[in-house]
Design a protein around this nucleic acid. Structure first.
Lengths: 217, 217, 217, 217
DNA sequence: AATGAATGAGGCTTCATTCAT
DNA sequence: CATGAATGAAGCCTCATTCAT
């Protein structure tokens, strides 16, 4: 049994070439997966179709991802990475701006850019995420809001409100805003942010929430 | 299609008995489905397991439901029916109360009662509902809020806000409130309603949304 | 367990009524079966659809026919009965005409009248007939020709030909004539009979069958 | 679809080996199918039984054939291929012989060799062929006879006869000759050809077709 | 590392037939 | 006699995954 595992690469470019090839195949698979997941939905998507589009062999898929779920997670990671970067950039660019509006605006911009991917991740298809990481997506989303809300709580500005729960409710609104784009592309991310922030700023008109005329018991 | 009614009316209870038996089998299937869907999730649920629990034969299932999807829809219909009834009751009992808080409170009560079912319908699993009826669940939810918001809009109380979009954002919050119960059962429906309504009443503290001290740029 | 089986019919019309009802149901089933068999083919036809069209209950079907096959056989019997009657009539009306042309003409007329039924019986669908009664249809068809051919054989007019085989070959031609009507309704039964009889009268032109110019080998 | 040829050409026989293996599995499936189709008939044949005999897994079947129908078509193609080859050989070997007898003889020889397969294709089972390709088998058969008959027609040797219809009637005879072998293996293909050609040469004795003695009415 | 033919468990669904009413 | 809800065996087919090359 001669094992010809070249521990010493014949040329020093070799490693880089192999690594690049690998990365390229991985990228092809991710791109194909994105396309197919968006088109068919996670459940209906088949690895078969993905590898055909990526133009690699069945076995190759399993050299890069353990299974379909890991593929989805990688795709989600891509989306979240994009998000993190944009948020980081925004924070750096506007260090004096209040956090929450900044994050909301940036998030909605990023999500609008990649509407279909975020739809996939936010909408029902992510049942796997839900089961494995318990709403990773939504939690990750809410996580951004927890620190400022907690700070406000400590400043006594939130009264009875639970900052964590509040963050999640806010997350729910944003997820709904993103899925709204499933049906209509209007309004764009800025107008959408205005709608969300408008609501957050003033709440609903008190006429809708209180019994205006009668002194209720 | 001629329907020969009571060709053999040996007892006049006959028809009723057959109908009752039929309804019972259907109910058994729905109960079994609820259990299995909640336990395994929609996708992982198999008709096989459902009929085993319902203790009927394969074919019997298809006598009552065309496929797994129709079963889910029937289950959803059950939940929505419960909801509609409770909302109707609440509206009748408190005709002078403002609509939105009433609906939110009632909805959260109903959803908390049947947490697991509503979780199934609200959370990711409902991708089928999404595809067939375009977010029927969420839309149905939002639908309740559209009329009062539209009225407020016409009274000029909503400024720039789009009442339909607002209703959906509100719906998103409520869905998130319900899925929150997936992890913790706390807070109960009333406290949850208070949190939601608190946010709707005042929005977030302005310190979180506006640049309080510095005239930016 | 009181069994109220009226062995003594209350009125003497009763029996007749019951018998008539029975016959009517049977006829409804046959008519429905004919329609469905023709439309879907034997294999694709379901008893379910047949009873729906006949407007009787599942169980009722099994009071009249043991299974789908018996239904097809009954239908075939109907067709053959029609055929026998028409042939008998023709034979009676023209006792001095030669048998074979008479039968061919009559057969083609009858088959054309009920093209679709005969198609069903002649064409591929009749694999059951084939398996159970070994080409009952075709054999029944050929049977008509065997006696006259045998007679001719005995008169020494057939030389080497086997009258039974000949009868079957003739049957094959006629079956093909009938299935021809599947695609085109032209030519009508009389012209078709002329074509068949023309071929039977003279065979093919000898130029097509013999090496006209060269003494081969 | 980029096809990377021989990325890993460890041995230059590699590709051939895989292809050969594949072809072998396909051949195994065809052989098994032939056996099962003949034994049980097309409808009664199950893919399960076929793969058991071919000793491959379920999925493997679907790697080679879309469904049962495609399998039958492939089998039919095999038969027709055999036929075409033999007819071509015969035509080349005897270019001076008249076409129709040559084809009939060759066809009957080929069909007799593979009696069971041809039975399957000619007899009722081929309803699928009928539906998909409109009697492909029979039409393909008749097709051979159309050109010479048309030529004869143009030479004025066919009088009233329609050459296309005639070809089909001839085809019907031959199909019947083949199915005759279902019951008896006698007479062999040569004697059978003699019977068919005998009938084509002279038709039936005129005594069977005309009213010989009496001027009718 | 890449390939892709082969695997096979297990899902969904149909439908002829029965039997209690 | 008529009913039709219930039965359940059995077929088809998919697709994630493996492994020899």
């Amino acid at each position: 049994m001669k094992k010809k595992t070249t521990n010493t690469p014949s040329t020093f470019h070799e490693e880089g070439r192999v690594a690049r090839r690998r990365a390229r195949v991985r990228a092809d698979l991710l791109a194909a997966a994105r396309q197919v997941f968006i088109q068919r939905g996670y459940q209906e998507a088949t690895i078969s179709e993905i590898i055909q589009i990526a133009d690699v062999a069945m076995g190759t898929f399993y050299l890069h991802f353990r299974d379909k779920e890991e593929l989805l997670l990688a795709l989600a990671e891509e989306g979240l990475q994009l998000l993190r970067e944009q948020i980081h950039t925004a924070l750096t660019a506007h260090p004096d701006q209040p956090l929450i509006p900044l994050i909301i605006r940036t998030l909605l911009h990023a999500a609008y850019q990649e509407r279909e991917l975020f739809l996939l991740l936010c909408a029902g298809e992510s049942h796997l995420l839900a089961q494995t990481r318990t709403h990773q997506a939504q939690q990750g989303l809410a996580a951004h809001f927890i620190p400022p809300l907690r700070a406000a709580k400590e400043r006594g500005e939130l009264k009875e409100s639970d900052p964590v729960l509040l963050a999640h409710l806010l997350g729910g609104m944003l997820v709904r805003a993103i899925t709204w784009w499933f049906d209509q592309d209007e309004p764009g991310p800025d107008a959408m942010a205005d709608q969300v922030l408008g609501m957050l700023a003033h709440g609903l008109p008190s006429s809708l929430l209180t019994n205006n005329d009668a002194p209720t018991s």
